[in-house]
């Protein structure tokens, strides 16, 4: 019953993500007020923060699935880890690009050697390496376990990237919502636009991971089926020599 509910909910993820994304766009571009100091470019926050959140959630998912793979739990954990890593890489790249645009407007520079920026860039490089590691040739089980170890090790970078703005002196602002004191210093309509944006990205990310896992575990997927033996030239039938 739980499985059928999950299957039904899964098929509705796409339309739900699209609907929430439409609402989020209206809230971010029309309803949310203009920022007093930063002006219109502050609206990039409604994409930048959900992108970073989705990346962190995706990498946490990679870590949990990696543990399941190492414990040899039955289930498509390896495929989920791969799909989540792909999503995380795309979202980290997006968060960095949006942050660069926003930074150029707010700080006057596209890039700064700032702890948050550097740790996030390290995160991106690490998970690109993780995906590259997965594509190396070798025994299927060994590749899976090697990727699981890497997925678990790299996940240590997620809290470092998140808390970097609290641990070190940084140009980047501290967390707005996930801060130690639970009183976000943000206008209510801005907070609403931000939270709906986070929900839209989360739903869309879940949709992507689900579709990708279905693809990776499908019987026709190259990742699910071992490679077929190389074709050989047909052996000619042996005939008795007739002689000249």
């Amino acid at each position: 019953m739980v499985r059928s509910w999950a299957a039904r909910a899964g098929t509705r993820l796409g339309p739900a993500a699209l609907g929430v994304a439409a609402v989020a766009a209206v809230l971010a571009l029309v309803v949310a007020p203009r920022a007093a100091i930063q002006g219109e470019p502050q609206r990039l926050m409604y994409v930048h923060v959900p992108g970073a959140w989705t990346a962190f959630a995706a990498f946490a998912c990679v870590a949990l699935c990696s543990i399941a793979v190492l414990l040899r739990r039955p289930g498509p954990y390896d495929a989920v880890a791969r799909a989540a890593a792909e999503l995380g890489v795309a979202m980290t790249a997006l968060a960095i690009a949006e942050g660069s645009l926003w930074g150029h407007s707010a700080w006057g520079v596209w890039w700064a050697w700032d702890p948050r920026l550097v740790t996030t860039a390290l995160l991106l490089v690490s998970y690109v390496a993780y995906l590259a590691l997965r594509s190396l040739p070798g025994d299927e089980d060994r590749v899976r376990r090697r990727a699981a170890v890497a997925g678990l090790v790299f996940s240590v970078e997620v809290p470092i990237a998140h808390f970097s703005v609290l641990w070190w002196r940084t140009l980047h602002q501290p967390p707005t919502v996930l801060r130690p004191s639970l009183s976000p210093p943000i206008a209510p309509l801005m907070l609403l636009a931000l939270l709906v944006g986070v929900l839209a990205f989360t739903l869309a990310g879940a949709w992507y991971v689900r579709r990708r896992v279905l693809q990776l575990t499908a019987p026709t997927s190259p990742a699910a089926v071992p490679a077929a033996p190389a074709e050989r030239a047909p052996v000619p039938p042996m005939r008795e020599e007739t002689g000249a």
Binding site: E40, P41, L44, V47, A90, L94, E98, W102, Y208, Q215
Partner: peptide, 30 residues
């Protein structure tokens, strides 16, 4: 870049990244 131009570039970039992810999944299916 003016304020709204920066916003437009940022949002178009987000749409492009998501479109790429969606296309990746749907393309490989066929």
């Amino acid at each position: 870049m003016t304020g709204w131009t920066t916003v437009a570039v940022g949002y178009l970039l987000a749409v492009a990244v998501w479109a790429l992810l969606v296309w990746t999944v749907l393309r490989r299916r066929s």
